[in-house]
Simulated assay, not measured.
Amino acid sequence: MANEPEFLVDKEREEDRKATIERKEGEPTAAFKGASWAALLIGVAAYLIGLFNASMELNEKGYYFAVLIFGLYAAVSLQKAVRDKDEGIPVTSIYYGISWFALIVSVALIGIGLYNAGSIILSEKGFYAMAFVLSLFAAVTVQKNIRDTQRARERD
Protein backbone atom coordinates (compact mmCIF):
# COMPACT_ATOMS: atom_id res chain seq x y z
CA MET A 1 0.00 0.00 0.00
CA ALA A 2 2.94 2.34 0.56
CA ASN A 3 3.68 2.55 -3.18
CA GLU A 4 0.05 2.99 -4.27
CA PRO A 5 -1.27 6.43 -5.16
CA GLU A 6 -3.28 8.08 -2.39
CA PHE A 7 -6.57 8.05 -4.35
CA LEU A 8 -6.39 4.22 -4.67
CA VAL A 9 -5.81 3.83 -0.93
CA ASP A 10 -8.75 6.17 -0.20
CA LYS A 11 -10.95 4.24 -2.63
CA GLU A 12 -10.12 0.93 -0.89
CA ARG A 13 -10.94 2.47 2.50
CA GLU A 14 -14.24 3.79 1.14
CA GLU A 15 -15.14 0.34 -0.27
CA ASP A 16 -14.28 -1.29 3.08
CA ARG A 17 -16.43 1.27 4.89
CA LYS A 18 -19.35 0.65 2.52
CA ALA A 19 -19.09 -3.11 3.01
CA THR A 20 -19.37 -2.73 6.77
CA ILE A 21 -22.20 -0.17 6.58
CA GLU A 22 -24.40 -2.19 4.21
CA ARG A 23 -25.59 -4.37 7.07
CA LYS A 24 -28.14 -2.45 9.08
CA GLU A 25 -28.22 -2.51 12.87
CA GLY A 26 -30.17 -5.54 14.05
CA GLU A 27 -29.78 -7.33 10.74
CA PRO A 28 -28.18 -10.79 10.91
CA THR A 29 -24.81 -11.21 9.24
CA ALA A 30 -24.58 -12.72 5.78
CA ALA A 31 -22.72 -15.68 7.26
CA PHE A 32 -25.54 -16.41 9.71
CA LYS A 33 -28.17 -16.05 6.99
CA GLY A 34 -26.18 -18.39 4.74
CA ALA A 35 -25.67 -20.93 7.50
CA SER A 36 -29.38 -20.89 8.28
CA TRP A 37 -30.38 -21.41 4.66
CA ALA A 38 -27.74 -24.13 4.27
CA ALA A 39 -29.05 -25.95 7.37
CA LEU A 40 -32.61 -25.76 6.03
CA LEU A 41 -31.66 -27.01 2.58
CA ILE A 42 -29.43 -29.76 3.96
CA GLY A 43 -32.04 -30.92 6.49
CA VAL A 44 -34.93 -30.98 4.01
CA ALA A 45 -32.81 -32.46 1.21
CA ALA A 46 -31.41 -35.20 3.44
CA TYR A 47 -34.87 -36.07 4.71
CA LEU A 48 -36.35 -36.15 1.19
CA ILE A 49 -33.44 -38.09 -0.32
CA GLY A 50 -33.70 -40.61 2.51
CA LEU A 51 -37.44 -40.84 1.91
CA PHE A 52 -36.98 -41.25 -1.85
CA ASN A 53 -34.48 -44.09 -1.36
CA ALA A 54 -36.41 -45.80 1.44
CA SER A 55 -37.85 -49.23 0.85
CA MET A 56 -41.28 -48.44 2.24
CA GLU A 57 -44.71 -48.24 0.67
CA LEU A 58 -45.68 -45.09 -1.19
CA ASN A 59 -48.38 -44.27 1.37
CA GLU A 60 -45.76 -44.39 4.14
CA LYS A 61 -43.53 -42.04 2.17
CA GLY A 62 -46.49 -39.72 1.72
CA TYR A 63 -47.12 -39.77 5.46
CA TYR A 64 -43.54 -38.79 6.31
CA PHE A 65 -43.53 -36.12 3.59
CA ALA A 66 -46.80 -34.61 4.86
CA VAL A 67 -45.50 -34.62 8.43
CA LEU A 68 -42.37 -32.74 7.32
CA ILE A 69 -44.35 -30.07 5.46
CA PHE A 70 -46.81 -29.75 8.36
CA GLY A 71 -43.95 -29.47 10.84
CA LEU A 72 -42.16 -26.79 8.83
CA TYR A 73 -45.30 -24.72 8.55
CA ALA A 74 -46.17 -25.18 12.22
CA ALA A 75 -42.67 -24.19 13.38
CA VAL A 76 -42.61 -21.01 11.29
CA SER A 77 -46.15 -20.12 12.31
CA LEU A 78 -45.37 -20.58 16.00
CA GLN A 79 -42.17 -18.54 15.72
CA LYS A 80 -44.12 -15.71 14.12
CA ALA A 81 -46.87 -15.84 16.74
CA VAL A 82 -44.41 -15.88 19.64
CA ARG A 83 -42.41 -13.01 18.21
CA ASP A 84 -45.49 -10.97 17.36
CA LYS A 85 -46.72 -11.37 20.93
CA ASP A 86 -43.32 -10.39 22.30
CA GLU A 87 -43.24 -7.25 20.15
CA GLY A 88 -46.74 -6.18 21.13
CA ILE A 89 -48.31 -7.06 17.78
CA PRO A 90 -51.82 -8.43 18.42
CA VAL A 91 -52.08 -12.21 18.19
CA THR A 92 -55.35 -13.94 18.95
CA SER A 93 -55.15 -16.59 21.61
CA ILE A 94 -56.77 -19.11 19.25
CA TYR A 95 -54.04 -18.61 16.63
CA TYR A 96 -51.34 -18.76 19.28
CA GLY A 97 -52.82 -21.96 20.72
CA ILE A 98 -53.28 -23.57 17.31
CA SER A 99 -49.66 -22.77 16.44
CA TRP A 100 -48.43 -24.54 19.57
CA PHE A 101 -50.84 -27.42 19.01
CA ALA A 102 -49.75 -27.87 15.38
CA LEU A 103 -46.06 -28.01 16.29
CA ILE A 104 -46.67 -30.48 19.12
CA VAL A 105 -48.82 -32.65 16.84
CA SER A 106 -46.22 -32.65 14.06
CA VAL A 107 -43.46 -33.70 16.46
CA ALA A 108 -45.75 -36.36 17.96
CA LEU A 109 -46.67 -37.65 14.49
CA ILE A 110 -43.04 -38.08 13.45
CA GLY A 111 -42.25 -39.74 16.78
CA ILE A 112 -45.23 -42.10 16.69
CA GLY A 113 -44.65 -42.88 13.01
CA LEU A 114 -40.98 -43.72 13.56
CA TYR A 115 -41.71 -45.70 16.73
CA ASN A 116 -44.27 -47.86 14.93
CA ALA A 117 -42.31 -48.23 11.67
CA GLY A 118 -41.36 -51.88 11.57
CA SER A 119 -39.72 -51.68 8.16
CA ILE A 120 -37.19 -49.03 9.21
CA ILE A 121 -34.05 -49.96 11.14
CA LEU A 122 -33.11 -47.97 14.22
CA SER A 123 -30.31 -45.99 12.53
CA GLU A 124 -32.72 -44.86 9.81
CA LYS A 125 -35.24 -43.82 12.44
CA GLY A 126 -32.56 -41.68 14.05
CA PHE A 127 -31.64 -40.21 10.67
CA TYR A 128 -35.24 -39.19 9.94
CA ALA A 129 -35.70 -37.76 13.44
CA MET A 130 -32.52 -35.67 13.25
CA ALA A 131 -33.21 -34.43 9.71
CA PHE A 132 -36.73 -33.49 10.82
CA VAL A 133 -35.52 -31.56 13.88
CA LEU A 134 -32.75 -29.84 11.88
CA SER A 135 -35.30 -28.78 9.27
CA LEU A 136 -37.71 -27.36 11.85
CA PHE A 137 -34.99 -25.46 13.67
CA ALA A 138 -33.53 -24.11 10.44
CA ALA A 139 -36.96 -23.02 9.17
CA VAL A 140 -37.49 -21.02 12.35
CA THR A 141 -34.04 -19.47 12.02
CA VAL A 142 -34.52 -18.56 8.36
CA GLN A 143 -37.88 -16.96 9.13
CA LYS A 144 -36.33 -15.03 12.02
CA ASN A 145 -33.51 -13.81 9.78
CA ILE A 146 -35.95 -12.67 7.12
CA ARG A 147 -37.97 -10.77 9.68
CA ASP A 148 -34.91 -9.23 11.34
CA THR A 149 -33.58 -8.10 7.96
CA GLN A 150 -36.91 -6.58 6.99
CA ARG A 151 -37.24 -4.81 10.33
CA ALA A 152 -33.67 -3.44 10.18
CA ARG A 153 -34.20 -2.07 6.67
CA GLU A 154 -37.55 -0.48 7.56
CA ARG A 155 -35.94 1.55 10.34
CA ASP A 156 -34.02 3.70 7.86
Results as ranks from 00 to 15, higher is better:
152 A>K: 00
69 I>H: 04
34 G>E: 09
115 Y>D: 14
56 M>V: 07
97 G>P: 06
117 A>R: 06
111 G>V: 04
76 V>M: 09
125 K>G: 02
58 L>R: 15
94 I>D: 09
118 G>I: 07
45 A>D: 08
44 V>R: 07
45 A>N: 14
147 R>E: 14
9 V>K: 15
114 L>P: 01
139 A>T: 00
106 S>G: 05
101 F>P: 05
47 Y>C: 00
56 M>L: 09
63 Y>H: 11
53 N>T: 07
130 M>F: 12
124 E>C: 11
33 K>H: 14
23 R>Q: 05
88 G>D: 01
34 G>F: 04
78 L>P: 00
33 K>A: 13
1 M>G: 10
62 G>H: 04
126 G>D: 05
116 N>I: 05
38 A>F: 11
107 V>A: 02
152 A>C: 10
101 F>W: 09
124 E>A: 11
46 A>V: 12
28 P>C: 04
67 V>R: 02
62 G>Y: 01
40 L>Y: 13
124 E>D: 11
129 A>C: 14
126 G>I: 05
82 V>F: 10
15 E>R: 13
43 G>Q: 00
94 I>L: 15
80 K>I: 03
77 S>A: 07
132 F>W: 01
145 N>E: 09
75 A>N: 02
10 D>M: 11
50 G>H: 00
31 A>P: 02
18 K>A: 13
145 N>K: 07
53 N>H: 11
28 P>G: 04
72 L>H: 02
39 A>D: 06
116 N>T: 04
78 L>R: 02
145 N>R: 03
53 N>K: 15
45 A>W: 09
116 N>Y: 13
22 E>C: 09
101 F>I: 13
76 V>H: 02
77 S>D: 10
26 G>V: 04
91 V>Y: 02
115 Y>H: 10
23 R>T: 07
154 E>H: 11
101 F>L: 10
80 K>N: 06
41 L>T: 07
50 G>Q: 04
100 W>E: 04
87 E>H: 14
152 A>V: 07
6 E>A: 13
94 I>F: 12
88 G>L: 00
32 F>W: 09
90 P>D: 08
10 D>V: 10
18 K>D: 12
153 R>C: 10
120 I>Q: 00
141 T>F: 08
91 V>E: 02
35 A>K: 03
132 F>C: 10
8 L>G: 07
130 M>K: 13
76 V>G: 07
97 G>N: 02
74 A>L: 02
123 S>N: 14
131 A>C: 03
40 L>N: 06
7 F>V: 11
28 P>W: 00
25 E>D: 13
31 A>N: 14
97 G>A: 01
132 F>M: 03
148 D>E: 12
14 E>D: 15
53 N>I: 15
56 M>Q: 10
31 A>M: 14
59 N>L: 15
83 R>I: 05
119 S>P: 06
97 G>H: 05
9 V>T: 13
122 L>K: 10
133 V>N: 07
142 V>N: 01
156 D>T: 15
10 D>P: 09
143 Q>A: 13
35 A>V: 08
111 G>T: 06
23 R>P: 01
119 S>N: 11
23 R>F: 12
29 T>D: 12
80 K>R: 12
5 P>G: 15
90 P>T: 10
151 R>G: 09
91 V>F: 04
60 E>N: 05
139 A>E: 01
5 P>C: 14
121 I>V: 15
3 N>V: 11
71 G>I: 00
16 D>T: 11
153 R>H: 15
36 S>V: 03
39 A>Q: 05
90 P>A: 03
